[in-house]
Write a protein that binds this DNA or RNA. Structure first.
Length: 880
RNA sequence: GGGCGUAUAGCUCAGGGGGAGAGCGCUUGACUCACAUUCAAGAGGCCGCUGGUUCGAAACCAGCUACGCCCACCA
């Protein structure tokens, strides 16, 4: 080896400078751009836009790693690949963050006013956008930065208005006063899926409601006594015998002294409580519906501040809990409290702040869902859109089938303003794409825009096409819509995936993507969700800083299978780092031995080990490509990992040394060529997963082309398959292992070379002889003597491999007792195998019904084990 | 109340109708000229339980148990 080469690569790989360097080069050369390859078949992923509320967490790291693997792989396949990056304005979340930061300076958003506050939000957006973009580049994301978008940029805003106005004109968006979910902390409505239902141990208060005519009372049960102030009826089931004659009677509502009717409605469950339900249409979704059916008055007693309002009379201004206690006390003192029982029931909480959601009636904007859901369900049921794994199909369908209208107005300042204006003079409602200046009906210029903004997900729903230029009919849109695959977590199937599907079909007349590749969430070591409150989140940048992006990516891909959660463990990063270092050193070794290499110098003279490794490589490449096709990223990487480490490094490299160090020039040249070729192919196979180190090494090995990023992804279509070489190498490796095993068990020192005698029939001996040099080199053998089958040397350790007897003469090396114990163990193992085989083969139905090749295989095994057993028994006899 | 997932080596997890796998950890040995982030050898599992299908089940089906998740207008 050349001393001068020693400094070419360090003995351990340091990712930091390499990663920085390559990302910059890739970007400068425009390799990420879809315009780099205009002829390829289009392939497109649009990135789920991270919220500009903060920085990326491990979930994003996983999501983006999977996308980058797919993107890089497709790009290497020659596809015209677009991975479109972007960020989301995240209405409530960002507004809350900005308000929080203002609060630290003692300022509220009202101090600033709407315009100035929104300006603050933009500043926040820019700051965190840059941070997120930095994180994405650090991870090696090969997204097309020139196409980057933001959900509130000019194009997306246009798309939002286009969509809103079209849906409005079709009657699919409407405004109405309905019961909605109100968060008194966030001071806005939230949609049904933004409400999280949590079990709470509570009580059921049984209250006596006296009849107005003084003929006794009826008992209702409630979990929320304070709402009784807004009761406008008591309902019973029409078939309930107990109350048949009570329907139509009036009740004198205690405390408020208002008369309310007893009504009959099928909603009532006769089994629950007393079977009579108090009805508060203004504060309960069910009661709201009943109220509509029976034309009941809606009396709101709770305000948007989450406190009792003026209609609560003497209780006005109290918070709900205080009011509840006072009401119960009053019922008790009036002698109207029948009972208090325990009840666990679920309470709706705001997904953001955890405040109990208050159902209240308020004028809001809604999207009519039924007509939109139908084709969206069909697209998935017909298999036009495919979920991976498939089980998420049912989850999606079930949700879509039971969907209710979507409340899209939010009482926030940060977001897409609803494109509706109200004429202050004639009351005309104007919904249009361009800001109006005068009322089309009365000509007044006194127009006021609706103060509300849209749910963030309204703009996200348009992401697969708004990012491609819609409503303009751009080339990008033609090329890349529908997107090929959407990669995202199962936690936002309802929030986002479902809404993209119906929006895409409605606006574009076509599904937004073909495949939905679903992954799970990244949990901490104990399996807990990573969260701010637990403080168990991990910043991907910290990992990259310590281990490099490649190690992070390796860990995320190998630890993951589609749709399942994964646990993050720091130790697992060591595995990635070690593997990368292994690859690094394999290439380092190759480069040390390629100094004098000149392509085409000699004709190739392939040996057994060359044919074997090339044959195996072909299979491994085909499997990797195939697994990627099936979205089995972890499996794809694992296959290459095993090949690279076990077969390439542990066997091929070791055996190639024979020719590299001592071979003729032609032999050396052949080994150099095969080694370089196999390594290069392995780097290419690994590049989508660990892009940085593979580029760094690929550039130094003999190669064609400017970058590994654009090398053709290996898929096993090239190269020669050679089953004979594989079979022969298996035999030789098994022999070597058996000798190593004897040496280790007998504690033969590594330095001490042992004589080996191999007794086998001529044909087998010939096969082994071709690998004689391999055995000498890898099994620390001094010399190998070939003997006729049946030869049994005295005082030797023995192994039996595929018909060959392998002897290591004792010659003072071997402990007789140990050898006896070792052979006895081997015999026991072999006997067990034979017992299993005999049982199987003596079973007539097995022989009759199992496929002939399976039976044949078992018979062959039986023969082999029988021979092995008699060989070992004979040996044992000789020893004792 | 419905639905789904998971259960495989001490730990984290792959796999999958015909001889139980990996990484880490553990034991033994080796600083062997690419790599001690390494090499070699090894120990360690009735593949959750009970039935069924099958010549054959850890794998497929049904039921059960435990844990986890999702959905639902449980006054």
């Amino acid at each position: 080896m050349d001393e001068a080469n020693k400094d070419k690569l360090a003995t351990t790989y340091s990712p930091q400078e390499v990663e920085q360097k390559w990302y910059q080069i890739w970007r400068e050369k425009g390799y990420f751009s879809c315009d780099n390859n205009k002829d390829g078949e289009p392939f497109c992923i649009v990135m789920p836009p991270p919220n500009v509320t903060g920085q990326l967490h491990m979930g994003h790291a996983l999501d983006n790693t999977l996308q980058d693997v797919l993107t890089r792989w497709r790009r290497m396949q020659g596809r015209r690949t677009l991975w479109l990056p972007g960020t989301d304005h995240a209405g409530i979340a960002t507004q809350a963050k900005v308000e929080e930061s203002l609060a630290k300076e003692g300022i509220s958003k009202y101090d600033l006013g709407r315009e100035a506050f929104v300006e603050k939000c933009w500043q926040w957006k820019h700051q965190y956008h840059d941070r997120i973009a930095k994180q994405l580049t650090m991870m090696g994301s090969s997204c097309d930065w020139d196409k980057e978008r933001f959900t509130m940029d000019e194009g997306c805003s246009k798309a939002v208005r286009e969509t809103f106005v079209e849906l409005y004109n079709k009657g699919l968006i409407y405004r109405g006063s309905y019961i909605v979910n109100w968060c008194s902390h966030c001071q806005t409505t939230i949609s049904d899926i933004e409400v999280e239902h949590k079990e709470h141990a509570g009580h059921l208060w049984h209250l006596r409601y006296p009849y107005a005519d003084g003929s006794g009372y009826l008992v209702v049960a409630t979990t929320r006594p304070e709402t009784m102030l807004g009761d406008t009826a008591v309902a019973v089931h029409p078939d309930d015998e107990r109350y048949k004659d009570k329907v139509g009677k009036m009740i004198m509502l205690p405390i408020v002294n208002r008369e309310i009717p007893v009504i009959a409605d099928e909603y009532c469950d006769m089994e629950f409580g007393t079977g009579a339900v108090k009805i508060t249409p203004a504060h309960d979704p069910n009661d709201f519906e009943i109220g509509l059916r029976h034309h009941l008055e809606q009396i709101a007693v709770i305000g948007k501040d989450g406190k009792m309002n003026a209609n609560a009379g003497k209780y006005a201004g109290l918070d709900l809990q205080e009011c509840r206690e006072k009401i119960v006390d009053e019922f008790r003192s009036l002698g109207l409290l029948e009972d208090i029982t325990d009840l666990t029931h679920s309470v709706g909480e705001c997904y953001r702040c955890g405040t109990a959601v208050e159902p209240l009636v308020s004028p809001q904007w809604f999207v009519k869902m039924k007509p939109l859901a139908e084709p969206a369900i069909k697209a998935v049921e017909d298999g036009e859109i495919r979920f991976i794994p498939a089980r998420f199909t049912n989850i999606y369908t079930h949700w879509m089938e039971n969907i209710r209208d979507w409340c899209i107005s939010r009482q926030l300042w940060w977001g897409h303003r609803i494109p509706v204006w109200y004429c202050q003079d004639c009351g005309e409602v104007i919904c249009q794409k361009e800001d109006p200046t005068v009322c089309p009906k009365c000509g007044s210029s006194r127009l006021e825009q609706d103060p509300d903004v849209l749910d963030t997900w309204f703009s996200s729903a348009l992401w697969p096409f708004s990012t491609l230029g819609w409503p303009e009919r751009t080339d990008l849109l033609r090329e890349f819509y529908p997107n090929n695959v959407l990669v995202t977590g199962y936690d936002i199937i309802f929030f986002w995936v479902a809404r993209m599907i119906f929006s895409g079909i409605e606006q574009m007349g076509q599904k937004p993507f073909n495949d939905v590749f679903i992954h799970g969430i990244v949990r901490d070591e104990q399996g807990r969700k990573m969260s701010k409150s637990l403080g168990n989140g991990i910043d991907p940048l910290e990992i990259i800083d310590k281990y490099g992006a490649d190690s992070l990516r390796y860990t995320l891909v190998t630890g993951n299978s589609p749709g399942n959660d994964m646990r993050f463990k720091w130790e697992r990063l060591d595995g990635g780092r070690n593997f990368i270092n292994k690859i690094w050193n394999a290439c380092r070794f190759a480069l040390m031995n390629l100094e004098d290499y000149q392509e085409g110098q000699y004709p190739l003279q392939l040996t057994l080990v060359d044919k074997w490794i090339l044959s195996r490589l072909k299979t491994v490449a085909a499997e990797a490509d195939n697994n990627l096709e099936k979205y089995e990223l972890g499996e794809a990487l694992r296959g290459v990992y095993d090949f690279a480490w076990d077969e390439l490094c542990d066997w091929y490299v070791e055996l190639a040394k024979l020719r590299l160090y001592k071979g003729t020039p032609q032999e050396k040249y052949t080994a150099q060529t095969v080694l370089a070729q196999v390594l290069r192919t392995v780097l290419e196979l690994l590049h989508p997963f660990i892009p940085f180190v593979t580029e760094e090494l690929w550039q130094q090995l003999p190669h064609h082309g400017a970058t590994i990023m654009l090398a053709k992804y290996p898929n096993g279509s090239e190269g020669e398959s050679c089953p004979e070489a594989e079979q022969q190498m298996n035999l030789l490796m098994e022999i070597i292992r058996s000798i190593r095993n004897i040496r280790a068990e007998m504690k033969v020192p590594m330095g001490k070379k042992a004589e080996v005698i191999i007794a086998a029939d001529p044909q087998l001996s010939e096969q082994i002889k071709q690998g004689e040099a391999y055995i000498l080199a890898l099994a620390q053998a001094a010399a190998i003597t070939f003997a006729a089958k049946g030869t049994a040397p005295d005082k030797a350790a023995k192994a039996h491999v595929m018909g060959a007897d392998i002897y290591l003469p004792l010659a003072g090396l071997i402990d007789l007792d140990k050898e006896i114990a070792r052979i006895e163990k081997e015999i026991a193992n072999t006997e067990n195998e034979l017992k299993r085989l005999a049982g199987k083969l003596s079973n007539e139905s097995f022989v009759a019904k199992a496929p002939a090749e399976v039976v044949e295989k078992e018979r062959a095994k039986q023969g082999m084990y029988e021979e092995k057993l008699s060989s070992l028994r004979q040996h044992l006899q000789m020893l004792s």
